[in-house]
């Protein structure tokens, strides 16, 4: 990891957001729902990100909202990862109709458009909380990783050491836990990070169309109010810019971590493309001008 600046940058940024999620509500200068007489004020020293039409402090809303975003991302990511490992590894390891069935199941969940599915489920729920939203996202977003894991497991299953373990009569569970799983760590990690990103965007999108934790704040609810109160036509750019940038930054951090993992898994992607002014090219090997060493 230390030799991987992308992943390191991503991890540091990610750590920052997690820290905000923990301490954000204490750091917030105002109660995010508290109204005041400073209606629709642009950013100022007392309201860093300005105020809403009700005089609420947007800085506090974004700060407090971080917790919900990180919580939903983490819980949904965990649920989806556990499901994808269960389904994907079994589908790859089990032969015959059981494996085929599980693989078809994940393909079905993959092609059904995720967001509309999440919308119809969440809007049918009697009440929506951060937890239920996270669970719905987690229960619907596992298919992509399950597919990747199945493919990986299939190829691992044919490796010599796995065949050898099987020939030795080791139990299926031992083989999966000790021979296969350790080789899937990077893929699972990358899947987790990808799902967290998807969950964060989904939660914010849901909040933006009006499905969110009752009374709670997240970056999407900030945007929901900005949209429904016509922040745009009133020129109140401060109302939607901070929340959007926060999403983009968190998203970039997660993508960077995943790039790091990708490069770890696929060495061809590692940027050794130009070192010391020499451009590495396929088809035309660079020739050093002078003898080195």
């Amino acid at each position: 990891m230390r030799s991987n600046p992308k992943a390191l940058t991503g991890l540091v940024a990610l750590g920052f957001f997690v820290l905000l999620a923990v301490v954000g509500p204490w750091l917030a200068p105002f109660d995010p729902s508290m109204r005041s007489n400073d209606l629709l004020q642009p950013p100022s020293p007392s309201h860093w990100f300005g105020t809403t039409h009700l005089g609420q402090d947007i800085f506090s809303q974004v700060l407090v909202g971080t917790r919900s975003v990180v919580f939903v991302g983490a819980v949904a990511g965990l649920v989806a990862t556990v499901l994808s490992v269960l389904v994907g590894v079994s589908a790859g390891y089990l032969s015959g109709s059981a494996g085929e069935g599980l693989s078809a199941l994940s393909n079905v969940f993959l092609v059904i458009p995720a967001l509309p599915l999440i919308v119809i489920i969440t809007s049918s729920l009697p009440e929506t909380s951060n937890l239920t939203i996270a669970l719905v996202i987690g229960l619907t977003a596992w298919a992509w990783n399950a597919r990747v894991l199945r493919a990986q497991t299939l190829s691992l299953r044919r490796r010599d050491y796995v065949e050898a373990a099987r020939a030795n009569g080791e139990s299926t569970w031992r083989i999966i836990l000790f021979e296969i799983m350790p080789n899937l760590t990077a893929v699972i990690a990358s899947g987790f990070v990808g799902t967290v990103l998807f969950a964060v965007i989904s939660e914010i999108t849901l909040a933006f169309i009006g499905v969110s934790d009752a009374g709670g704040w997240n970056w999407g609810t900030v945007l929901y109010w900005a949209q429904s109160q016509q922040a745009l036509t009133q020129g109140a750019w401060w109302w939607f810019v901070p929340a959007g940038l926060a999403i983009a930054l968190l998203g970039t951090a997660l993508s960077l971590v995943n790039f790091g993992i990708d490069e770890y898994v696929n060495p061809r992607l590692r940027t050794r493309s130009s070192t010391r002014g020499v451009r590495m090219r396929v088809g035309f090997t660079p020739v050093l001008a002078k003898e080195s060493s």
Binding site: M280, T285, V287, K290
Partner: peptide
């Protein structure tokens, strides 16, 4: 063989 024809893929380098 690939070095002398400059077909060696990265990270290969002809050093002299």
């Amino acid at each position: 063989a690939y070095g002398m024809t400059r077909l060696l893929p990265p990270p290969g380098i002809v050093a002299g």
